[in-house]
Design a protein around this nucleic acid. Sequence first.
DNA 1: CGGTCTGTATGATAATGTATAATACAATTT
DNA 2: AAATTGTATTATACATTATCATACAGACCG
Lengths: 129, 129
Amino acid sequence: MFFHIDYNSSQPIYQQVIEQIKLTIVNGGLKPGERMPSIRELAKTLKINPTTVAKIYNELAHQGVLVLRQGKGAFVAPKVVSLASEEIHRIVAEHARKILVEGLRFGLTREEIDLIIDAEYQSIRKGEQ
Amino acid sequence: MFFHIDYNSSQPIYQQVIEQIKLTIVNGGLKPGERMPSIRELAKTLKINPTTVAKIYNELAHQGVLVLRQGKGAFVAPKVVSLASEEIHRIVAEHARKILVEGLRFGLTREEIDLIIDAEYQSIRKGEQ
DNA sequence: CGGTCTGTATGATAATGTATAATACAATTT
DNA sequence: AAATTGTATTATACATTATCATACAGACCG
């Protein structure tokens, strides 16, 4: 479990860790059912406050990414998509708009943006970070 | 100049407006060289504080989206890409990773994500919001 | 020139978000 | 029983966000 925190980032550390945990799950570094380090353990590893890790795990549980069980630990949720497809579409489309606006304003074409996404896709699939 | 502010959003209003201005420029609703409403004017229209609009314009000027001229007004910057292509790539790739992680964790395929991006692309090109 | 429009800048205030710290409680495992 | 887990609270500190009031400086026009 190697997550990296950038204290100079504008992103709060709890969001950085949330992103990295999601990424690790998506690229297969963490599998459904697998046990996460305990709140206190991860806090110690990352040298951040246990309350912050609790917030991270809670948010991920709320998003359906983790399942928390008192006394047992935190586990990667089984791959069950509970959200309606319209909701999924809305979330992804929101991200799509952002990448398009950024890309287009730099003068990139739709194809060039796609190439960058493809490269990132390969990177994720290879488990790189 | 019709921007909409959602006070219930988790996004701060200055970020919402920044996004919408960028989007409007990208879809042709605002053209390079065109004059923006003055800080006080936009503040009045959106019913937010002039200081907040000043922050918005400053941030956009810093990003090279607007050019501010004291006593004259704020203008959409000419289409000059000053950033190094590596920097552009880095920014877009960061967004790419986010959309991929969200899409993949919902079980979408690379192709399905691409379809959503395409739909959003058409929507932007049509000038929809 | 004088007035009015611009962006620029500052200080004060308030609400919210972020992070740490200490502590206690409840469920589970050994 | 002891240890480990998640859960929950309270207090504290700092940064971010947004408002408000005020003043300054460049540009333009009659």
